[in-house]
């Protein structure tokens, strides 16, 4: 059992949880994830580690309410416990070898680039950040990005904050404007990462993506998170979650991720009486 130490509402359906998990915090690093179960009957669901405090023994995750289990999680309050919290899993992201880095976060994906910018900042490395969301209320960690980024570019679909447009518009703009990045780390919905990878391929810039796949155990056992990367089967849970965006078969990943959508919907219906 792990206690929820604090819960903060970020936007309409995104909550930030600080969880007491000393064993996970002890070895956690940016880029890794945890598997949690809300209660004894719960599914095992993966969440990116957004932040951690080794001394306090805490791990921070950001949860977007999208399905049955995340809805259940959203009903828990400060002081409540979740049944299981296992990790840290996956490989940590290491951007040490790059000098001029652009971090790109789409929607909740910004939660994955947040620990990266913090890590880079702590090492004295400057990086630019592009974040994107449908509208202003869905942009997350805005102040934090302002603090840690060399330049922060915000993009919204409706223009309610930053510039109107997609993150790819801004990336193209920056590259055409003469920015010389040696690495782009992009995290967001699969179609966004696919679009970024397709764009940067033309510029020949190393592009790393973080693959959020369906998982059961998170330890390489079930194979449900498998991806084709450069014509080889790779497991997001143990080989990733980061991969070379130019080698990932995104269409396959999108098809695989949508597999349980109908079933998930029916569970959500049961929980809400059909209201979402």
């Amino acid at each position: 059992m792990n206690k929820i130490l604090s819960r903060k509402k970020f936007s309409e359906n995104v909550n930030e949880y600080v969880i007491s998990a000393p064993d996970v915090a002890r070895r956690a690093d940016a880029g890794q994830f945890v598997i949690l179960r809300v209660d004894e009957e719960g599914e095992r669901i993966p969440f990116t580690i957004c932040d951690f405090d080794r001394e306090a023994g805490t791990v921070t995750i950001l949860v977007q309410t999208v399905g049955y289990s995340t809805m259940k999680l959203a009903t828990l309050k400060e002081g409540d416990c979740i049944a299981d919290f296992a990790g840290p899993l996956g490989k940590a992201t290491d951007l040490d070898e790059y000098e001029n880095i652009l971090l790109v976060g789409g929607g909740i994906g910004s939660a994955v680039i947040y620990p990266q910018i913090k890590k880079l900042f702590s090492k004295g490395k400057k990086a630019d950040v592009v974040t994107g969301a449908r509208n202003e209320s869905l942009l997350i960690y805005r102040n934090e990005f302002k603090t840690y980024a060399r330049n922060l570019y915000e993009m919204t679909d409706d223009g309610s904050a930053g510039e109107k447009g997609f993150v790819t518009d801004k990336i193209r703009n920056l590259l055409d404007g003469g920015e010389r990045y040696d690495c782009i780390f992009a995290v967001g919905p699969l179609p966004m990462m696919k679009a970024v990878a397709n764009l940067t391929r033309g510029y020949g810039i190393k592009t790393i993506v973080s693959m959020n796949t369906v998982m059961v155990d998170g330890t390489g056992m079930c194979g449900s998170c498998r991806l084709t990367v450069g014509n080889e089967i790779r497991y997001a849970c143990v080989d990733g979650p980061e991969f070379d965006g130019h080698l990932v078969d995104f269409d396959e990943a999108i098809a695989r991720n949508g597999f349980y959508r109908d079933e998930e919907r029916s569970h959500v219906c049961r929980l809400t009486g059909g209201v979402r």
């Binding site: 064993d23 996970v24 070895r27 299981d84 296992a86 990790g87 899993l89 330890t219």
Partner: peptide, 10 residues
């Protein structure tokens, strides 16, 4: 001790 992955947690 559950939820403990040797190679990861310890």
């Amino acid at each position: 001790r559950f939820d403990t992955i040797i190679g990861k947690t310890f």
